[in-house]
Design a protein around this nucleic acid. Sequence first.
DNA 1: AGGTGTACGTTCAATCCCTGAACAAGGGAG
DNA 2: CTCCCTTGTTCAGGGATTGAACGTACACCT
Lengths: 380, 380
Amino acid sequence: MANSLTGLRETNRRLITETVRKSGALTQAQLARQTGLSPATVSTIVRELRDAGLVEISQAGGRRHLISPARETGLVVGVDFGHSHLRVALAERSHKVLAEEAIPFDVGARAPEGLAAAERLIIGLLGRAGVSRAEIRAVGLGLPGPIDPQTGIMGSSTILPGWAGVDPAAELGRRLGVPVVVDNDANLGALAEATWGAAKGRREVAYMKIGTGVGASILINGLLYRGATGTAGELGHITIDENGRLCRCGNRGCLETLAGGQQLIDLVRPTHGQVTVSRLVELAHAGDIGCRRVIADAGRHLGVAVASLCNILNPGLVVIGGALAEAGPLLIDPIMTVVGRLAIPSAARAVSVVKGELGERAGVLGALARVQSPNVESAL
Amino acid sequence: MANSLTGLRETNRRLITETVRKSGALTQAQLARQTGLSPATVSTIVRELRDAGLVEISQAGGRRHLISPARETGLVVGVDFGHSHLRVALAERSHKVLAEEAIPFDVGARAPEGLAAAERLIIGLLGRAGVSRAEIRAVGLGLPGPIDPQTGIMGSSTILPGWAGVDPAAELGRRLGVPVVVDNDANLGALAEATWGAAKGRREVAYMKIGTGVGASILINGLLYRGATGTAGELGHITIDENGRLCRCGNRGCLETLAGGQQLIDLVRPTHGQVTVSRLVELAHAGDIGCRRVIADAGRHLGVAVASLCNILNPGLVVIGGALAEAGPLLIDPIMTVVGRLAIPSAARAVSVVKGELGERAGVLGALARVQSPNVESAL
DNA sequence: AGGTGTACGTTCAATCCCTGAACAAGGGAG
DNA sequence: CTCCCTTGTTCAGGGATTGAACGTACACCT
């Protein structure tokens, strides 16, 4: 199919629809440059797509036509469980987010409670946006732990004990009556940054989410890399100090025990009392020496992990997300320093480390991206 | 390019050549059915390929034409520089090795001497096999250090100082008058094991070469993965102990300083005198407690690195090559123990760690594989 | 304001590619 | 020996992409 002449046309149609979907709105000339097709081809294909109702065309100054994805009917929902929050977004199939809400939530709670809370939030958003439950087409669900891609069940029973053995996608799907796809929150964050954020257009990327815990995800050749059994990217549990603190994964001295938000909170509690990660970052920005110090220390530990990552994978870009990323250079400079010292020089030169652009919305946006794109059914 | 009209033809040409190469010999009708192309297209493409000398056609009863890959004429040479040896092989393009020889050689010597020695060995093999120098079509060259794939020059000047700044491929090519492709010895070993050895048919594989130093290479989806700038897989220089011994790469406590053959040799020198890695392994097999202990310790350090690798990449198979791999379970059991303890459980369950099947020939066979089959590299 | 340059989208002939149908050539079963 | 099936080739037909040419609208300079 892919090698026939009409198959070629089909391929190019898809190429254009995909490009339009990713960029939101483009002129035909931009489209031609990005896809490598000739303006003539773009012209005819765009007309076909308009006739088929897959894209919309609006005049935009001069002879320019602005091509945008057709206002697709139906809605999608993104759900993102963090260690201490739950965030839900309701969006059109095109990229417009209609409503979004986040609440504090302890993921240590058992799965049924979490899913019930998610369902309540979704229903709330539906009301606020004035749309009906029946319009939901798909739900993307992010969880802060390794997911077995075969079964959809948490890979490790020690990391999220309240969720062991349950199939969250099936469970939430049963509650809502729509298909649910589940994935690791770091994978979703990476997907979001690659689609709309700091990693847009980049192909060899690592994403690290540093919130309460530490998660990571890898993009190889622009695609999520899951490894042989789907748990690739668990950078949060590589061992930095064999004699370090016990980790909830059961090992000792994982990166997470040294650079996870929880550890930072514990470290400043004697001097600053109980704070959140965000508060700690605020204090650091305001000049608090202690907070700056624990963040810099975390950065150095992260640097060790990133250096290993660079030696192993040689990425071109490392995006830092999660609440701690808001510390910006306070966190990233130490990372770069350590990477420069520990990674082999050519790998260190190749990599840039940047803050994610989507902040705390990365996870939920990734959940949306996860269920928005696979719209490849042949409409023509 | 992949979407233009001529690109389509190119795609189909490749599709047919690949199918022919994989099946060995096919009629045009079989080819049409397998590729899904029409007999007419197959007919014209086959004619083109014949004219280009890429396939051969023989009559086979009735109207049937038997299409087979062109009997590739000419010879290829593999050259493998280890830290302490130089091995050269001469082979037909089909996979038959005609002659092979290895000599002790200190790679610390300067590049011109090394290349001159390689040239002498090649000429010797030509004589032994009774073939002329003019029949050589290509040379694969393996070096024990990171190669910049753009320039072909050593990426780090501290690892192989005698080779800094020289372009070994161009240099050897000038001496022999044929194209030379250069690559890291670990990459070549991985390629060899994937083509003929322990990783045959596997898709998510890491290869670690533990000789005097420690090198590594990664196969993703069955193809060599080089990362953004071509230095992926430098597992030998990930930091295991930040306060450890100085490494020749300039850092401290690299895996290589803890598990490289050189370190093991140094460790047993007080009790056993100067030995080689192979001798040390022999002694361990014979029951020597000290040698067993240093090998087991090396295995534990390697285990730390392999555990990181598992958490990051989640490979299905790790192949251990190099001289120290001959220790077999004495080395691999400790690796597995540590991996089971440090890697997250699902990644640890997914991976098996095995000894390479090609032994000390892995590098040179990989050099042959590199120039025998053109498409081994992940397209970038 | 006016002239000029530039970027954009469309049209059209030229070119290339795949395919279906028609056809010639052989082999095998009965 | 005849019939039938398979195989490979040829040829016309229809699609698809592209470069060139063209009309148009905006931006910029004078």
